[in-house]
């Protein structure tokens, strides 16, 4: 069958792609070019080769930020997946009020991370904050100021992030669990499989697609973390809990435009490497 209706319907992706090129690809490539210059945002940029990247390796603040970002991701991504999976397994059981619990657990994820972070900042104020008061009532007098200890501050940022988004990973795992046909459980039951065996051989393999989505989105999300840190510690004490994305954005107003695009490129690499590794890993697992 061939009916001539012109051929411009083949180009229906172009409006989207043109807009995408203008506001995404063009800045992306411009950033890549600028990262090899000393541009200050005003005068004519001059080409300085890899100098910005060399500077990056000697920039104590940037390296500290890389450490914070990676530590945050190493804490946040696995914990989010563990909690999400545990919650999904729990909510996969039948009990009354399940819908309500699911909604409750998902609720924090619909709120802006900036607002949620601000709320936790308020509740977690040392000494007179509501959690401190609550702890005092039950006899624990933690008078230490967590905001002054960089390690504790980072742990708290991770926990707040997990608290906010565990429901999100849960919903995705739950969808994966509910896609498993009931017959598979029955078969495992008849074969006399223990519950841990059922999980390993029946449930887990079928959760691979949900696992893949959750892990990849969590890697990207946690390595570009921004709002939660800004609201909770503003990168402090000092620059101890500053993430790489915050550093990049703080240079936006300064005169180090060229350098900041180089740092953005480094962040890009830091995200791309684990994403590619996990994509390859999951593709191999799915082939089997």
């Amino acid at each position: 069958m061939h009916i001539d209706t012109g051929s411009w319907h083949r180009y229906m992706a172009l409006p989207a792609f043109l807009l995408f090129s203008l506001f995404f690809l063009f800045p992306l490539m411009q950033g890549a070019v600028l990262s090899f210059t000393d541009w200050d945002g005003f005068s004519t940029p001059s080409f300085i080769g890899f100098q910005n990247f060399v500077d990056f390796l000697h920039d104590a603040r940037a390296l500290q930020d890389v450490r914070t970002t990676v530590l945050f991701a190493l804490g946040s991504a696995p914990l989010l997946n563990l909690c999400g999976l545990a919650l999904a397994l729990l909510l996969n059981k039948k009990f009354r009020g399940k819908q309500v619990v699911r909604a409750l657990l998902y609720l924090p994820a619909v709120i802006s991370p900036m607002i949620m972070g601000s709320i936790w900042y308020l509740l977690l104020q040392p000494k007179r904050g509501l959690f401190a008061l609550l702890l005092q009532r039950v006899g624990v007098s933690g008078q230490g100021n967590w905001m002054l200890s960089s390690n504790l501050a980072l742990v708290i940022i991770v926990l707040v992030n997990v608290w906010q988004y565990a429901g999100m990973t849960m919903v995705i795992y739950l969808a994966g669990l509910q896609a498993i046909p009931l017959e598979h459980y029955e078969a495992a039951d008849i074969e006399g499989a223990s519950s841990s065996q059922t999980f390993r051989h029946i449930v887990f393999p079928q959760l691979i697609p949900s696992l893949k989505i959750n892990i990849i989105t969590n890697i990207i999300g946690s390595l570009s973390v921004f709002e939660a840190i800004l609201a909770l510690t503003d990168g402090g004490p000092g620059y101890d809990t500053e993430s790489l994305s915050i550093y990049i954005l703080r240079m936006c107003y300064g005169n180090k435009t060229g350098y900041s695009t180089a740092v953005a490129l480094m962040l890009f690499l830091i995200i791309l490497i684990p994403v590619f590794i996990s994509l390859r890993f999951f593709n191999k697992v799915e082939e089997r």
């Binding site: 792609f17 506001f23 995404f24 240079m251 900041s260």
Partner: peptide, 21 residues
């Protein structure tokens, strides 16, 4: 293919050049 590759890039990376644009 280009779009798929860009799916992995958080918008934050573009902020500085986008700002000047």
């Amino acid at each position: 293919t280009i779009l798929l590759l860009c799916m992995m890039i958080p918008g934050i990376i573009n902020t500085v050049p986008l700002y000047t644009l």
